[in-house]
Design a protein around this nucleic acid. Structure first.
Lengths: 340, 340
DNA sequence: CAAGTTTTGAGGTGCGCACCTCAAATTTTG
DNA sequence: CAAAATTTGAGGTGCGCACCTCAAAACTTG
């Protein structure tokens, strides 16, 4: 039979009340008693019954995803995955909500985050671009004992918060390797398109991409990054112009999570030239384009996994539990038509 | 406040005892009462508290992984992942054990499986090659109400059991696509090596691989499958002979989970010819070889994910719970040096 | 309609722990 | 050494449900 707290009290030679004080880190425990309990825990192999803990605490966990208002298919997918998790977690007294706020103005984001307190929310997963104000706001959130997860976003990583997402330099390097190897002996230029190069993740992907192209594929050349600002007309214009000026373009790399606008522009402008195309993130658009062989490879991070991981992390932090690190690492996936 | 069973009883106009009978599918419930309860559940949004259920049931779950005695690094990795999960699950009254049995003799495997009963084990995850005896034994296990998971193995899929693992045809196709695209314009032959072609997964991978090579890369030719039987000397011999007879070999595809023996043989025999190499599964060996650029790509399925998925499935089946299908699909991963 | 069968309700117990109170024992301090 | 502060123990309650018993009520059958 598995030892209970009562057994532990007996083994440690203290009362149940003291066991309770030790296990729940309550005040007024002498070092001597704490040591006796710790030893007894080791000796009899005591493990708290999580079900009993959850039942007795009878606590409701409240977690919040803070996502941008802007965004296309990838964001939609993310929100769908959150809804899915919400249904599952309802059984476990865990409320999950999504709040979308405009990320253009860092002050506004910071203000929103600052208004959150420990009473209304246990944990927040934030997807916001890098800015000192937002970073400060996150640090202050942590100080107010709200569990913070930096979620799939191009911010400086905080020490005091968890990060969920891939290493974007490595993701860019992976894209570079795929593009380079798929192009084989073909020489020429690679067009690089992003929504904006303000985001840290775009910068890191670009750096990773270039690091591979420059060292391993010297016959290829990455063009300067084009920025669409998620504007279709602007995308059409600058992409068409770039393709005209660079008739020796052999490939396209879309840095952003949303590839629909830039790639539609590319296909409008490309004429009949076959280009090797690498993009990021699995969306209905990129999936279809892979099937149609208009995209050669997609570098992706599983949004479902990311959402569940963020929730597991916030939950574990709330309970002061350890978590299985290997389960929380988000993989850089390479998607082809064949392994969708 | 979240509704409890008591609230449900009130809402349905029945007693707690009847609620209990309905929720736990006990006998002696009139259709009328069952309907009243079902409606009330919908109406007030009742959800059983899993923590309370677990506590009240106070059940210990016993799951078993049945793995081959033979095997190299991938099997070691799998077992390590099981141990990891074991530690985590101990808190949740779940015992996990690994049993390794020789898979050469299907009768022996079947006999072992037949000896398992519902009293000693709640669920079994079996990694065994295809054979009618084993299949029968699995079916009978299911009939005895043991939850069965077909685990990463080349068996015919049972309807009555769950399967954890990738679609091996698609995995082979992915390998084919990567090999074909990485070879680019190069023409020549691809050597294909397996431990044995008796296993269904090897056959399916081969079919998937060929389907891509034959249709999309007509300048490449897959050689007949070599079988090493996990024997180093035999591997050295047949691989050397094949490379001599086929001086126009440009690539190697290792079908099996364990690539160490065949690839060591290839590198012993290859001279200075640079070959494009695609293998399966991430192991210390394949990881190092990717880093050293002696393997170009590895097609993998995450063993940690597979183990956790099998455990989640067995647990959910034991509790008659639904599970989140999207979380249980094992991805066909493409590993390069850059996204390790 | 009586005897049998099925269905229902009332009530209790226990799962393992968190959280609370209050008094007693022990240690610290002036 | 007395007063104050700290530490400890005993005991209780409740979390939401499973599982059990027994009697009462509601149906079914001949």
């Amino acid at each position: 039979m598995r030892p209970t707290a009562k057994d532990l009290a007996e083994a440690a030679g203290v009362s149940l009340a003291t066991i309770d004080r030790v296990l729940n880190e309550r005040p007024n425990v002498s070092p001597k008693a704490a040591k006796k309990v710790a030893e007894a825990i080791e000796r009899i192999g005591f493990i708290r019954n999580p079900a009993a803990v959850a039942l007795a605490r009878n606590k409701t966990y409240r977690f919040r995803f803070v996502l941008p208002t802007s965004g296309d298919q990838y964001l939609t997918e993310l929100i769908a995955r959150v809804s899915e998790a919400k249904d599952v977690l309802r059984a476990e007294s865990t409320e999950v909500e999504v709040v979308r706020i405009p990320m253009i103005d860092p002050h506004h984001v910071a203000k929103y985050l600052t208004a959150i307190d420990h009473c209304s929310v246990d944990g927040v997963a934030v997807m916001a671009p890098e800015s000192p104000q937002v970073r400060d706001a996150l640090v202050r959130l942590v100080e107010r004992d709200v569990k913070v997860v930096q979620f799939l976003s191009g911010q400086e990583r905080l020490e005091s918060a968890d990060y969920v997402g891939v290493d974007n330099f490595a993701a860019g390097a992976t894209a570079g390797k795929i593009a380079g190897r798929f192009l084989g002996a073909q020489a020429g230029k690679i067009m690089i398109v992003a929504e904006t190069m303000m985001a840290l993740d775009s910068i890191q992907r670009r750096l990773g991409f270039d690091s591979i192209i420059n060292t391993q594929f010297p016959h290829l050349e990455s063009l300067p990054s084009l920025e669409t600002y998620a504007d279709e007309k602007r995308a059409d214009l600058i992409i068409q112009r770039t393709l005209q000026h660079n008739p020796d373009t052999v490939g396209v790399y879309v840095l952003s999570s949303e590839a629909r606008v830039p790639l539609t522009a590319v296909w409008n402008a490309q004429g009949s030239r076959p280009l090797t195309v690498v993009a990021h993130e699995r969306t209905p658009f990129s999936e279809q384009a892979l099937m149609d062989e208009r995209i050669d490879a997609v570098i992706a991070q599983d949004p479902g996994h990311a959402v569940r991981s963020a929730l597991r992390i916030m939950r574990a932090r709330s309970d002061h539990r350890e978590l299985l690190a290997s389960q929380e690492r988000i993989r850089i996936e390479v998607l082809l038509k064949e392994n969708l």
